[in-house]
Amino acid sequence: MEAKCLECDASVKIEVDAVIGEIVSCPDCGADYEVASLGNGTVTIKTAESVKEDWGE
């Protein structure tokens, strides 16, 4: 499956075993996306949250 990068319009490949919530990166510009929905061979992505000060373990 593929989605279009919202920044640079490059193709972002989504693995067949991807799950909703997984993070994918654009191979061209490096923008991070979250898999928003999956179904019938289609996928939608949304901009992933950026790392915040309180992120971690």
Binding site: V19, I20, V35, A48, E49
Partner: peptide
Amino acid sequence: LYDRIRWEEK
């Protein structure tokens, strides 16, 4: 409960 799915959550 997640906010980002990583290898661990899968």
